[in-house]
Simulated assay, not measured.
Amino acid sequence: MLTKADIPSWIAAILSWPALLPISRIALVSAFLIGGIQKLSDFNGAVAEQAHFGLEPAWLWAIAAIIVELSGSVLVIWGRFVWLGAGGLGVLTAVAMFTANSFWSMEGHDRFMALNAFFEHLGLIAGLVLVSVLSIRPQSEKSHEAFHDLQPSP
Rank of each mutant, 00 (worst) to 15 (best):
I26P: 07
I26T: 11
A27L: 13
V29I: 05
V29A: 06
S30D: 00
A31C: 12
F32I: 03
L33D: 07
L33R: 02
L33I: 12
I34W: 13
I34T: 12
G35Q: 02
G36C: 04
I37G: 07
I37M: 07
K39H: 13
K39Q: 06
K39G: 07
L40A: 11
L40V: 03
S41C: 04
S41I: 00
F43V: 00
N44K: 15
G45F: 10
A46K: 01
A46Q: 01
A46L: 01
V47N: 02
V47E: 11
A48S: 11
Q50R: 10
Q50G: 06
A51N: 08
F53Y: 15
L55G: 06
E56C: 00
E56I: 00
E56Y: 11
A58M: 03
W59Y: 12
W61P: 01
A62N: 02
I63R: 10
I63K: 09
I63H: 10
I63A: 15
A64P: 01
A65H: 12
I66Y: 13
I66E: 08
I67S: 08
E69Y: 13
L70A: 12
L70N: 11
S71D: 03
S71I: 08
S71P: 00
S73I: 01
S73W: 03
V74R: 06
V74F: 15
L75N: 04
W78V: 10
W78C: 05
W78K: 13
R80T: 12
F81K: 12
F81A: 13
V82A: 09
V82S: 09
V82C: 08
W83G: 09
W83S: 08
W83K: 06
L84A: 14
L84G: 07
A86G: 03
A86N: 02
G87N: 08
G88S: 06
G90S: 07
G90P: 04
V91I: 15
L92D: 08
T93K: 11
T93P: 11
A96D: 06
A96C: 06
M97V: 10
F98E: 06
T99G: 04
A100C: 05
F103P: 03
F103C: 04
S105V: 11
M106K: 15
E107Y: 09
D110R: 07
D110S: 10
D110P: 00
R111M: 14
R111F: 14
F112I: 00
F112Q: 08
F112P: 00
F112V: 00
M113W: 14
M113F: 15
A114N: 06
A114M: 00
A114I: 00
A114V: 00
A114S: 06
L115M: 14
N116Y: 15
A117R: 05
F118E: 02
F119M: 00
E120L: 09
H121M: 09
G123L: 10
L124P: 01
L124D: 02
I125Q: 02
I125G: 01
A126R: 05
A126T: 10
G127D: 07
G127F: 08
G127N: 08
V129S: 05
L130W: 15
V131P: 04
